[in-house]
């Protein structure tokens, strides 16, 4: 796969993508505003956000399809500008949400066409490799119009692999796919990550982002946060223990309130209590002793696990609340 590009002044760019205060407006409507982030080479970077958050517009802007209203960016070491459009597009590959295949052409003919546009030498070998990577070698002669949505998505992925890009932009690559087809796409992305390909993945699917991405950005017209999923969890949520007892406690406040390691507590349902703690490893034994001392039948004491979905909903709900107020 492509190595980090050497810049004209002889140094090597550290980041595959550097975005600085980038804004895109369509008339009075702001697609995204003042976003800044960096993506390292070989990183799988998730770009999350609700519908209309500006994810696709960001990809189109970085892919030189749209001109930014303001701000700057460097894509694969090349500054985003009018003059560099062709050079940038030579180094990247974008798979839009809809694969956009020529349905009257075969899989191979579609790929041959795009190989020609990238000016690839020995396209036959490259096409064969790309089709093998997406497990489609046996469908090479099929007309794209006769393929299922999942298979078309795979042809779209094969197309992005053709040019050996430094950065791959995948816009909702598993949108509309069944679980098996999604899993195949996930495995392909994992394989590409292992080969050191930089992947910019926009998705609605938080489980997908959590599984595949080294870092994620959560976007809602402006960038809400960027970081590793575990970092975001720590940043947004206090640590907590979830305590479950066989029967509801008669006086939980008497049990939990006096414990030094417990900051506060709440009951989510009868027999289930969430305790805010600063250090679960210190708090858990203390809580266990107190419960046993009070004669409670303890079913479990576990550290609360927050998913990326919790992080996402926390941030997006904040935006919804802010809009309402």
């Amino acid at each position: 796969m492509s190595a980090p590009p050497t810049l004209s002044h002889g140094t090597t760019s550290e980041s595959a993508l550097v975005v600085s205060n980038l804004t895109k407006r369509f008339g009075d409507r702001t697609a995204f505003s003042e976003i800044s982030f960096e993506v390292g080479y070989g990183e799988v970077f998730g770009f999350l956000g609700p519908n209309g958050a500006g994810k696709t517009t960001t990809v189109r802007t970085l892919g030189t399809l749209l001109a930014p209203t303001s701000g700057s960016a460097t894509v694969a070491g090349i500054p985003l500008s009018a003059d560099n459009g062709v050079e940038i597009r030579q180094r990247i590959a974008i798979m839009p949400e809809s694969p956009g295949l020529y349905l009257r052409l075969t899989v191979t003919e579609n790929l041959e066409f795009f190989a020609g546009l990238y000016g690839l030498h020995q396209p036959t070998a490259r096409i064969k490799d790309a089709l093998e990577a997406v497990n489609l070698a046996d469908r090479a002669s099929d007309l794209c119009g006769g393929l299922s949505k999942g298979l078309r998505q795979r042809v779209g992925l094969a197309r992005t692999l053709l040019s050996d890009p430094a950065i791959m932009f995948l816009d909702e690559p598993t949108s509309g796919l069944d679980p098996v087809a999604s899993l195949e796409v996930h495995n392909l992305i994992i394989g590409l990550r292992q080969k050191g390909v930089t992947i910019f993945l926009t998705t609605h699917r938080l489980d997908e982002a959590e599984k595949l991405c080294d870092r994620v950005a959560i976007m809602n017209q402006s960038l809400r946060t960027v970081g590793r999923p575990d970092e975001l969890r720590e940043r947004l949520f206090k640590k907590a223990l979830v305590v479950r007892t066989l029967a509801p406690l008669s006086d939980p406040d008497k049990i939990f309130a006096h414990l030094a390691a417990v900051e506060n507590w709440r009951s989510e349902e009868p027999g289930s209590y969430v305790l805010s703690v600063s250090d679960p490893n210190v708090a858990a034994p203390e809580v266990a002793r107190s419960l046993v001392g009070a004669g409670a039948d303890v079913l479990s004491i576990a550290e609360a696990q927050h998913s990326l979905e919790d992080v996402y909903l926390e941030l997006i709900n904040d935006d919804v609340e802010a809009t309402k107020s």
């Binding site: 030189t64 001109a67 500008s81 009018a82």
Partner: peptide, 21 residues
């Protein structure tokens, strides 16, 4: 006009230079 063809909206005046080679 790439922008209009992709998004269906007219290109807005950009403070950076137009990306449409």
């Amino acid at each position: 006009n790439r922008e209009r063809l992709v998004t269906g909206t007219k290109a807005t005046r950009s403070r950076t230079r137009r990306v449409s080679p």
